[in-house]
Amino acid sequence: MLEFLQSGPVQSALLLSAAAALLCGALGLFTVLRGQAFAGHALADVSSAGGAGSLLFGISPLLGFLLFGVAGVAGLEILQPRRAAGRDEAAGILLGAGLGGTALLLHFCVTTHGAAGTAQAVMFGAMFSTPSDTALWSCLLAGGCLAVLALIARPLLLASLDEELARVAGVRLRALGLVFLLLLALGVTLAAMTVGAILATALLIGPAAAGLRLARGPLAAALLSMALGLAACWGGIVLAYESYGWIPGRTWPVSFFIVALLLLFYAAAGLRRRA
C-alpha cells in the first residue's frame, strides 16, 4: 500500500481524478436534472477540437480547448430551442458541425504543416503523467468552477426542477442557463484534458444518476454524487495498479475500471431503491 501511495504517477492520478470527479459530480447533478447529458458530451467533443485549432493558430492547447468549449456553448445557445424537448437534436447537430469543423482544421494542419506534427485529442486518459503546472491549473480552475456553481446552485436547482415557478420567483432563466452551460463546458474540457474525453462523460453522468437514485434531498444528492465519482476514480486507480501482471506484458486500462465501477454503483443504486 505504501508503495502504491509513494508512486509519483499514482499521486498525480489521485489528484487530477479527484478534481475532475468532484467538479463533474456537482455539475452532473444539474446536467442530469436538466436532461443535458448529450449537450455535456457534445461540448467535451467539440472542445477537444481545440487541440487541432491551437496547433493551427499557434496558441497554447489549454487556451485552444477553452476557446472551442466557449464556441460550443455559443453554438448551442444559437441552435437550442426554448423548449426542453428539442435540446437533444440541437446538441446532436452541434456535435456534427463541431466534428466537421475539426475535420477541416486537421485537414489544414496536415496539408499546411506537412509532417511537422499534429496534436491529438486525448480520447483516453493521460492522468498518470500530467505536468505539475497543468495539474495546478486544473485544480485551481476546478475550484473556481465549483465556487461559481455553489453561488448559482439555488436558483439553478429551482429552474431545473420547475421552470414556471422559477420564472414567477424572478429567476432570469436564459442567463442562468447560459452560465450553467459555460460552467459545463469548462468542467468537461478540464476533465477531458486531464482524464480523457471518455471519462469526462462517464464522470459527469454516472455518479449523478446513481446519487439521484439514492439521496432524498438535492444537497445530499450532490454530495453523494461527488463522493461516488471520487470513489470510482480512486478505486479504478487502485485496480489499475493491482492489475499489473495479471496478464504479463499487457496492461488493463484505468478508464475501463473507472467506467465499470461507475456502472456498478449505478446498478447497485437501482437495486437498493427497488428493495
Binding site: 489499475a240 496492461t251 478508464s255
Partner: peptide, 14 residues
Amino acid sequence: NDTDPSPQDVAAEE
C-alpha cells in the same frame, strides 16, 4: 495505441 498506460509502467519510465 492511445490507451491508458499502467501506473507501474509510467513510474518505471519516469
